[in-house]
Design a protein around this nucleic acid. Sequence first.
DNA 1: ATTGACAACATACTCGGTAGTATGTTCCCA
DNA 2: TGGGAACATACTACCGAGTATGTTGTCAAT
Lengths: 247, 247
Amino acid sequence: MVQAAQNRIANAASSLEASLRVRKNDEPSQKSGANSRQEILRAAARCFMQHGFAAASIDDVARELGATKGMIYHHFRSKTDLFFEVYRQGMAINFAAIRPHSEGESNALDRLTLMGLAHTIALLEEQAFQRVLAQGVAMHQQGSTTAAQREALVELIDSRNSYETMFRSTIEAATKEAGLSVNDLSIASKSFLAVLNSTVFWYSPRQDNPKAERATLAFELVSYALKGLGTTMPEAANEFLEQYENG
Amino acid sequence: MVQAAQNRIANAASSLEASLRVRKNDEPSQKSGANSRQEILRAAARCFMQHGFAAASIDDVARELGATKGMIYHHFRSKTDLFFEVYRQGMAINFAAIRPHSEGESNALDRLTLMGLAHTIALLEEQAFQRVLAQGVAMHQQGSTTAAQREALVELIDSRNSYETMFRSTIEAATKEAGLSVNDLSIASKSFLAVLNSTVFWYSPRQDNPKAERATLAFELVSYALKGLGTTMPEAANEFLEQYENG
DNA sequence: ATTGACAACATACTCGGTAGTATGTTCCCA
DNA sequence: TGGGAACATACTACCGAGTATGTTGTCAAT
């Protein structure tokens, strides 16, 4: 089941990239088409970020698009479904960011470092989606009415757990390989991610050079998180960040 | 202005302790009196924690107390005011927890460690209030109607900033005294607190021995946070935790 | 070219929930 | 005994989710 959830998330990720590519190649003001769904998701992410799920209204999202409720409800069954899709997309972005580095042939510490850097940069580049993830799904445990919503809910929770497990097992491997000072693996994993995720609450992008700023911020955070595990930043980090700033 | 805010927060803290003491000495089922205000705050904190500010209704809070709206609005002007008071109380709890250790005559690293431990334990003991703090006040920036509310808002923000500054300056002092590996002081402070605060999102108390569990959890978290700064837990931690578990 | 059918919205409406208020009611205390 | 504190009850007004229906463009078949 977790694997199925991951596959669906991965599909959502690739369809996201596809639609983004389509939008670039199409006419600039193409209003119709399947990418309107993507615009809704982005606008919804901003609204949910600003006001929270309950306080954000469907009309707010529509207004941000210069549209009306009818459009939203043409693409999504309910406000809850819309929120879940935003959440899925956020998770898909994160999975797409770290997966390439979770299976590299290098050692575990390098993998962990690159995963952390990629995670943090994805966080900084998609703040809106990430703050929706930070809001969590706990609130919806109470009042998910339909069966499909409950199903979607456990899928999101599975996906989030699977994501954290990827970090935890990499930390575990690195602990064995490099002899880190990890006492409680669960607490260490939570703390590691907490450091990286903390940016969404206080980072506001500067104007001059966003890419360089994100790179240095990610470096500082991952450096702190690694020191918390009892190790230091490996050389592989510099290579990755240079590639990011140029690519 | 910041100092004034701190004083008012401190007053709220001592009045909290006073009312708690009063409740213990009074008859067990004393319904009337000034402590009903405290019960409202505790119930409101639980509701705001579970559903978030917007989704939690005044009737929910009243129902949790076996009362009705009229009682709530007899003590608080509006839902926003109630939230602000919960927030103030949460900050007051935190200030009361760490202040004794922020002015001890020991070295900066000891002070930082004890502040971190006290902060984390206060977090674990008052989850409801702390999750309200985590929700933040950003949402209310938009729609604070009355002038008094806007004033209260900046006071809360000042208070929060003042709290973080206490940690930041202690980290700065410890960096100079003990030569920590802190590059960016601001990022280090944010990360330090992020590790300690992360518990509110995933900690759920066990039944057997809550005090011991909190002590070990706080130890692990502060240990991680200190390693992130490039140092290790000093001996003063053990003394503090033993005193906590017995006192 | 015409028609019909469907997608992609906009408009107008219903309806339940909730913040806030206005008005009792009870009890205590001066 | 009367006045106010500490509530409960009853009511209003509004906002927002969801729905029902109208409108427009497009495309495909005939």
